[in-house]
């Protein structure tokens, strides 16, 4: 659900645009540390991946379905700075090439669905990683919890923005309750799918998961003696 033009008033739209521009500027610097000179092609393909994830629908039952927001999973997979760049680029392309989400609401969409989900998802993920035992099997769980928390926080942030620059008077407590309530449910889905997806990547290529690299580095080299020698495969 992208915020369209005219949902928030002009000053709020401009202010969120300034915040988004600042965040992208910071992220451009930070991403160089995560990806060095590979930034442009890698971030471009991860952005295409994030775009594609929003196209895969997950059936919820009773004929309804939803899709991932993808901010938290992107943060865990490629690092927070690159994730901010990728999600922002996705929203810019969606606004300019697909007319999805208002062009004046571009900053709002980047702040809410890109920036906030990436940052919240990453902070929760890192926080859990600091207190939980360092095992790769726990990374999907931490990623899932990060994704779960990120969705209602983004909804709360939307309510706050609406309180500042909303164009209609809706009782704010009702709006906040409805938004957070619905998004808690969406967050459960986001969390479970993120955990499952990160788990499947860790099983195959744990080295690709940015959030798991610290743990991998702490692993010790073990030399396993060959069980059988000269046996046919």
């Amino acid at each position: 659900m992208h915020v369209p033009n005219g949902f928030l008033d002009a000053p709020t739209s401009v202010a969120t645009g300034v915040v988004a521009a600042g965040a992208i500027g910071l992220a451009l610097r930070g991403a160089r540390r995560e990806l060095d000179d590979r930034t442009a092609p890698m971030a471009g393909l991860v952005a295409a991946f994030v775009f594609a994830t929003q196209m895969l629908n997950f059936p919820v039952g009773a004929g309804t379905s939803g899709h991932l927001l993808g901010g938290a999973i992107a943060a865990v997979l490629v690092g927070p700075w690159t994730a901010i760049l990728c999600t922002s680029v996705v929203f810019v392309v969606q606004a300019l090439l697909f007319a999805d989400g208002g062009i004046t609401a571009l900053g709002t969409n980047i702040d809410l669905m890109g920036l906030s989900t990436v940052l919240v998802g990453w902070c929760v993920f890192r926080g859990l990683q600091a207190v939980m035992p360092k095992r790769t099997s726990l990374v999907p769980v931490q990623a899932g919890l990060g994704a779960f928390v990120s969705v209602p926080v983004a909804a709360l942030l939307f309510t706050a923005l609406y309180a500042v620059g909303g164009t209609a008077d809706i009782p704010l407590d009702k709006l906040a309750a409805a938004m957070v309530g619905v998004h808690l449910l969406i967050g459960i889905g986001e969390g479970i799918i993120t955990a499952l997806a990160v788990g499947s990547i860790i099983a195959v290529r744990p080295d690709l998961v940015y959030g798991a690299r610290r743990i991998l580095r702490a692993r010790e080299l073990e030399i396993r003696p060959a069980a059988t020698s000269g046996a046919s495969s």
Binding site: L196, S200, I201
Partner: peptide, 11 residues
């Protein structure tokens, strides 16, 4: 979810 995983690795 495994489709996602595969898609990410391929991308």
């Amino acid at each position: 979810a495994r489709t996602f995983g595969a898609l990410f690795i391929r991308s």
